[in-house]
Design a protein around this nucleic acid. Structure first.
Lengths: 209, 209
DNA sequence: TTATAATAACTAATGTTATTAGTTTTGGCA
DNA sequence: TGCCAAAACTAATAACATTAGTTATTATAA
């Protein structure tokens, strides 16, 4: 009952994900993981390059799952409705997999090809959804960044219990999405020469206070 | 040269902040901290309740510094200009103190009074700046949450190197702020009965796609 | 001024973890 | 059937956090 028991990468990732989601990413240890898998911790080195290696694999795995969820949410929809759907899918994913999501966020090393590929696929999905808005030039990528900032910020703060007030979390998310959609719509109309180049003359409409 | 050397909480927090900002919060160890302070690690227990206690103190310290920076940025301004200023101050703080900011985010224990007080002061500051917009009822708090989500999301992703594309970071932040301001302005006009209760009839203006 | 109490440093010891080196077993393939 | 590479193992080391118990120093009170 020793060598050749059924230990492989998928099993490791699943177990690690469970621990991460239940106890937080920082509590994923090779010792605990090995224990859960009924194995001695050095055995894990046959499948994963130590703790840093495990975290890398978890990140790639997580980005893939997130992208799949978002893609699934987007099918059959377009425009604002598609954006709302993928936004809700994003937050749902974080609620379902807080620890795995955390793994997703850690700065990848520059040469991590798997990570780069998965990240690009996620960005590409959002870019495709944004296509109908016909942003010019690089503007789409700015919009993607804003969209992601908003979603990550909300999801992250929600996870850390950062919202003290007893206010509806879903209501907050819907408001956030609505504000984003409205804001981008206004800016696109105002800034005919590009989102990041505010036209001086059009900037005065309703501004300040 | 042993007992009674100049070790106190401020010195500890300053050293811990330096390590956190340079090497990340997860690399703040009592061992490393003690080494930096020319002290044996058990000595730190006289000032701080182990590593968890240190992290708590760092969080409170960090929130205080962040609030001070934002308050400073807000003086003499109001409305959109004040919001822009405190938003920039927020991001500047995270750039200056990435590790300390990280400490700020960890879910506090329910009975951490210091943390609660400092957090409330920060929220109160933003609420005061939002006062001129005259949101009704709880709406201000929803707006605070959205504002914070956006800022945290941007700052956090920027820190993790989460933005792959070679696009201007400051340009992204300005766009994000502008979209937020425009979005909230539009929603406030549209939703006369409250931000989180979209009026069915007014929802159709320019929506979807 | 001196004795005592509290404080802040220390040393020593324990347990947990990651990681490496070297060993053994086994499943698949020649 | 025998060999080899993969996958598990044991043993050992080093870095930590943490606790217990010790000592020296400061502050306080007689």
């Amino acid at each position: 009952m020793s060598p050749r028991m059924g230990l492989d990468l998928p099993a490791i990732l699943q177990a690690a994900t469970e621990i991460a989601d239940q106890q937080g990413l920082e509590n994923v240890s090779l010792a605990g993981l090995a224990n859960k898998l009924d194995v001695r911790s050095p055995s894990l080195y046959n499948h994963v390059n130590g703790l840093p290696g495990l975290r890398k694999k978890m990140a790639v795995y997580g980005i893939g799952l997130l992208t799949a969820d978002m893609r699934h949410a987007a099918v059959g929809r377009s425009g604002d409705e598609a954006l709302r759907a993928i936004a809700r899918a994003y937050v749902s994913f974080v609620r379902k997999h807080p620890g795995l999501y955390e793994a997703t966020l850690r700065a990848p090393e520059a040469d991590d090809e798997d990570h780069r590929r998965e990240s690009e696929a996620l960005v590409a999905l959002v870019v495709r959804v944004l296509d109908v808005y016909e942003y010019q030039g690089e503007d789409v990528y700015y919009v993607v960044r804003c969209f992601r900032s908003m979603l990550h910020g909300f999801a992250s703060l929600e996870q850390q219990g950062g919202f003290g007030m007893p206010l509806g979390l879903d209501d907050t998310l819907e408001l956030l999405i609505d504000a984003f959609l409205a804001g981008m719509r206004v800016l696109k109309q105002q800034r005919v020469s590009g989102l990041t180049k505010p036209d001086a003359w059009s900037e005065r409409a309703g501004d300040s206070r």
